[in-house]
Simulated assay, not measured.
Amino acid sequence: MEIGEALKITRKKLNLSQSEMAGDILTKSYYSKIERGIHEINARDLIDILNLHGIRIQDFFEEFNFEKNTFGKSNFDNLHRLVGNAYYQKDTDGLLKVIDAIDKFPNSQNNRLARGLRVEAKLLYQGLKYGPEKIDDETIREVKQLMFNSDNWDELSLTLLSVSLSFFKNDELSAIIKAIVTRNKPDKLTSRNREIVSSILINYLAYSYNRKITKGAALSLTFSWLSELDSSPKNCLTKIYANYFQMLLSGNKEKANQIRQFLNDNGMEDLTRYLAR
């Protein structure tokens, strides 16, 4: 169930209008679009609305996911979406609110999913607040511990790797990338894990370009893996990014600039702003 739909059900149970549910936190118009699934709600606003009406976020998720007094996969999925939204919107307060919400689950200290999401939110918070170079050693150690505390590259391990590439030396990261692409063929992955691996590989291409690494087995395997993605709409942007970095790494900046301009011409300036040049 989407968060907007869950909010609508909760509002009706409380016998509130949309204006009363949104309070002073959101306009009625914007809140209405969240209930209808047109807009997503960010972490800070969701938690503030729930607090306004005396609803704990863990109770809110548990009611709609039937996971009583525990942190489970559906809690992870919902809160992870909030973490992603908060990071994209540079909302450090939202990230702190998600961390606080995770801590309130009774089993969060001993639950790998809860600990993984918490340290991801913490890492992103520190990166936004102080800069990537100021992320503390304890957070980096916890990320690596959780990432490698599994025999397989599961969703959590892949997610943590996607936000921590810059912490690794090139030889370490090259070995990790080779392991991932050889063990996880695109057609064998769930759609979610395929999306995460695609993100990791695009970030690895940016990592390589920024460090002037233009050759190597890991790079060749990366481009080969990305070329195996089908040409469905959900993979289009990934394939464009792969082509962009292939042009950069081969020294064809003129072609790379054409790709960047194409994205800008189609209203994607927010995405190209963070692309390596």
Rank of each mutant, 00 (worst) to 15 (best):
S19H: 06
T139Y: 07
F66P: 00
R273Q: 11
K185H: 14
D45R: 05
R183F: 07
I34C: 05
N257Y: 14
Q89C: 02
A114F: 08
I213K: 14
Y209R: 13
N243L: 14
E2F: 11
T70C: 00
I240Q: 14
V181Y: 09
F223T: 15
L16P: 00
L275N: 10
G84V: 01
K212L: 08
L79M: 08
Q58P: 00
I55S: 01
K97F: 06
I176L: 04
I55P: 00
I176V: 06
Q258A: 15
E228D: 15
R118N: 11
L249K: 12
K129Q: 11
T272C: 08
K134Y: 13
A206F: 05
L52N: 02
S220T: 15
R192K: 11
Y30N: 10
L219N: 13
K104P: 00
R36P: 01
L248W: 13
F71L: 04
A101R: 02
Q18F: 04
S29R: 12
Q126V: 08
V163L: 03
L50A: 03
R11E: 00
D270P: 02
R44T: 01
Q126E: 13
E63C: 00
W153D: 05
Q246E: 14
V181W: 05
D151C: 04
V119L: 04
L271K: 15
L124C: 04
F71V: 05
S250W: 09
R260M: 10
D230I: 14
N210A: 12
P233T: 15
N257Q: 14
D265E: 14
V119F: 07
N65C: 01
E142K: 12
N210I: 06
T182F: 08
P106N: 12
V163M: 03
P186D: 11
D45Q: 08
D24S: 04
E5V: 10
N264Y: 11
K122M: 08
L7R: 04
L46C: 03
G267T: 12
D137S: 14
K122H: 06
N264Q: 13
K90T: 01
N203Q: 02
L248R: 15
L271V: 14
I259H: 12
D230L: 14
S17G: 03
D59K: 02
N257S: 15
S227F: 15
K12Y: 05
I49K: 07
G251R: 12
L263V: 12
G4R: 09
T139M: 03
K134E: 12
D100F: 10
L156H: 09
H80E: 06
L7E: 02
K73V: 04
K33D: 08
S224M: 12
N257F: 12
A121D: 03
S208C: 14
D77I: 09
L124S: 06
L156P: 01
N75F: 05
N184F: 07
I47Q: 02
D24G: 10
L275K: 07
T222D: 10
E228Y: 15
M247Y: 15
I202R: 04
L156F: 10
S199K: 07
K97G: 01
I196C: 04
L271C: 10
D93S: 08
F245I: 10
A101C: 02
Q58D: 03
I176S: 03
R273S: 13
E142F: 11
A6R: 03
K104L: 07
L165R: 06
E228G: 15
L16M: 02
D151W: 08
R118F: 09
F167G: 03
Q126C: 05
E228A: 15
S74T: 04
L156K: 10
D24W: 01
I135M: 08
Q89A: 07
L79R: 06
L158S: 07
